[in-house]
Design a protein around this nucleic acid. Structure first.
Lengths: 148, 148
DNA sequence: CTTGATAGATGTACTGTACAACTACTTCTT
DNA sequence: AAGAAGTAGTTGTACAGTACATCTATCAAG
């Protein structure tokens, strides 16, 4: 009896820790990104990264992928265009939509920000064993898949 | 040679995955909190939870702990007070500072939000093995400790 | 008693975000 | 072919969260 109660308690405790630590991380992330690469907010970084990964997509795709309102994306993209990081190309087949793609400058800015992010992550994970990294990566992926 | 290159590559890949998944989580967290408990934003929740954990503290302590500007905390606390979730008590020893503590209503609102958060986490982690939960919790704690 | 430190509030400004209403275009239906 | 319905994107408006600079009140140390 006390055995199962103890096991349930450990389970509770582990979940509480996960909740607390993930929340702490979430709280810090924007400010940390702002410190790491002030020229590119976390959201801008994410959108540019998606454009790079996808090789160009529409605003609607960004909105759907990140659960953002299309107006939010519209303004973000407008700002990124103003900054010279993205370009829009009208589709001759369908004049409603515009394909967004990175400019060369956008690629460079993204690369620099990605580099600084990567350095920060490497610094924090530098002394982890390969097997630990693999497991952590797998756990996070599994968690996010369940959340999304 | 190819052996070490492969190991380094796996390491890189794991770190990249961790980076991607943590970023994805951070991006979603605020909106998720807003959906989960609309009456208490992620930040408000965090501040109330800290007041509960600490059993009452000063605005400055909150600012230091969460790396927020004191003006931000001042306004957040003012809003929480307006909502009836916290009360301030002047210290007769030092009239500069005010001890913040939860009201009974604040405790209830916090408890409800915490409950809904907890349910969401349990739902996502329900089918994890105890050993997996322990390791995930330990990894997150280790990561955050390195980041802070 | 002045000087400097500390706690907090306020003025101002900017970012990210949503919702609603609008325009422009495309596709479907009759 | 004409009108209805759907889709992509923009714009008006509003709000939350945040920072920085500045101000007030208080305390502490010389």
């Amino acid at each position: 009896m006390s055995g199962t109660a103890g096991a349930a308690g450990e389970r509770e405790a582990a979940i509480a820790t996960i909740q607390r630590e993930l929340t702490a991380f979430a709280r810090r992330s924007r400010a940390a990104a702002a410190r790491m690469h002030p020229e590119l907010s976390l959201v801008s970084f994410t959108l540019l990264a998606h454009l790079e990964d996808s090789g160009g997509c529409r605003g609607t795709d960004l909105a759907a992928h990140y659960l953002l309102d299309k107006s939010t994306v519209s303004r973000q993209v407008a700002a990124l265009e103003r900054a010279g990081h993205v370009e829009r190309r009208s589709d001759p087949e369908d004049h409603r939509m515009q394909l967004l793609h990175l400019t060369e400058q956008g690629e460079q800015v993204l690369a620099r920000a990605a580099d600084r992010r990567s350095q920060a992550f490497h610094a924090r994970l530098g002394d982890w064993e390969p097997a630990e990294l693999e497991r952590f990566a797998a756990y996070l992926t599994r968690y996010n898949d369940a959340a999304g």
